[in-house]
Design a protein around this nucleic acid. Structure first.
Lengths: 175, 175
DNA sequence: GTCTATAGTCCGATAGAC
DNA sequence: GTCTATCGGACTATAGAC
């Protein structure tokens, strides 16, 4: 993973071959593909951990709490996990933003996060389309907040940015 | 485009080669790649048209209309464009839902739609992060409404489903 | 670890429309 | 004369089969 991020940063995603990543990591190309399904996946390894945090937060929330509040709290918790990895997250974000192929994979991971959150809400009794829309809103706040955190040089906690994004949506919905 | 959709429906996306698509359309493989950047793009050709509809609707809205209302109206208009193509849209949705590679591309197109809407809102003076969040909410309503339309056999207008999704989010935001 | 199919790029040639 | 469409061959890297 480190070898890949370094190479993608140095030469760009398209300018890097899987053989080069494998060589820098000291393994063969076949071994690379045994660990990661494709050339992109190497940058998305920890994403299922975030999903567990979000789903867990939704499941553990008080029974009759408002769905949007539950999800907003969950995504803020999830964001806080990234606070410790700010350097890796920042370098990774630069590469992803520069590469459409990586953006696609990132969006698929966010969609998986959103589906998991919507499922957890439905299990709490939230009906459709409310469950899907609340999940979308939460993941959107996470994404927008994360981007602002990266863009502003990470001087404020990422969870603050995320909460600011969800507050902005609530305000607009009330107009 | 017809050749590709037919083949993807018959044999699946992975079971179809670009050479086969080209052959069925009566051109060479090289010609296929001059029209479409890759194997996926052939199913996403009209998407920039939807973007124009949405951005146009946002630009033409009354000056001090509420941003979320403007975007909701815009995505409902955009959805209505698909009403005429319900058969193509339905067949296409089946293939996309079955194929992660195509889902990724679909998500990228939705992200492009979202960025275009956020940009149009900023030009109207909406600040961040409100502009991004309102754009996310609108595109989410479009996606959720479209899926419900496909899932229910298209017996009600797609724009109805989209409006129902945005109404559900407003309701949740008020709790 | 070996072998192979296929997606996708780069080079260039040709030909009709206006 | 320029624009745009088709086509061909050779090539490389990704990714899957075994």
């Amino acid at each position: 993973m480190r070898a890949a991020l370094d190479l993608y940063s140095e030469r760009g995603f398209d300018g890097t071959t899987t053989a080069e990543i494998a060589a820098r990591a000291g393994v063969t190309e076949r071994t690379y593909f045994r660990h990661f399904a494709d050339k992109r996946e190497v940058l998305f390894d920890g994403s299922h951990l975030l999903e567990e945090v979000l789903v867990g937060a939704i499941e553990d929330a008080p029974e009759n709490a408002a769905p949007l509040g539950v999800v907003d709290a969950g995504v803020a918790t999830m964001a806080a996990v990234l606070e410790d990895r700010r350097e890796f997250a920042g370098r990774r974000a630069v590469v992803v933003d520069a590469t459409p192929h990586l953006q696609e994979r990132e969006l698929l991971k966010l969609a998986s996060l959103r589906d998991a959150a919507a499922g957890a809400l439905r299990r709490r009794g939230v009906a459709e389309p409310a469950a899907s829309m609340v999940a979308e809103a939460g993941v959107a706040a996470f994404r927008v907040g994360f981007e602002a955190w990266i863009a502003t040089g990470q001087d404020r906690p990422v969870a603050d940015h995320v909460r600011e994004a969800s507050a902005a949506l609530r305000e607009q919905a009330a107009r």
